[in-house]
Amino acid sequence: MRAVVLAVLLAVLPMLAQAVEPDEILADPALEARARVISKQLRCVVCQSQDIDSSNAGVARDLRLLVRERLTAGDSNAEVVDYIHARYGDFVLLKPPFTRRTVVLWLAPLVLIFAAVLTGGLSLSRARRRRTDAALDPEDEARIAAAMDRYKQGGSE
């Protein structure tokens, strides 16, 4: 049991690792918390599938410092994000805004789910209808019952 706990703890240990270095962290914990929230929304432009909060790339570090600098200067969270958005475009946002260019991106999952539910529902209801169609008429039911009876009597003899 102890070994299992140890293994699990060791397995989750890497999750504690972070790219934010001690010299970047702000003295004010409230500002630092906001900086971490913002950093998680911004994509690293070098590594592309990581947020800047967890990236070790040089540009990501620069952007983290920039975020903290803007926050210290009194910017709101939205203003900080806008500042970086203006320089790096939609690409830098991990959650892209809903615009004319991103309509397909946002709506495709909904359309696909709707289509899946529709086709699934249609084929299920058709299958059920076929099953009720396939039910035997009373005459056949009676013949089968008679045959079963004969078989059971024959089996007991």
Partner: peptide, 13 residues
């Protein structure tokens, strides 16, 4: 020196 102009230009490397 500090890469700030690089950010203004939106460079990635």
């Amino acid at each position: 020196l500090d890469g700030r102009a690089g950010i203004e230009w939106g460079i990635s490397g």
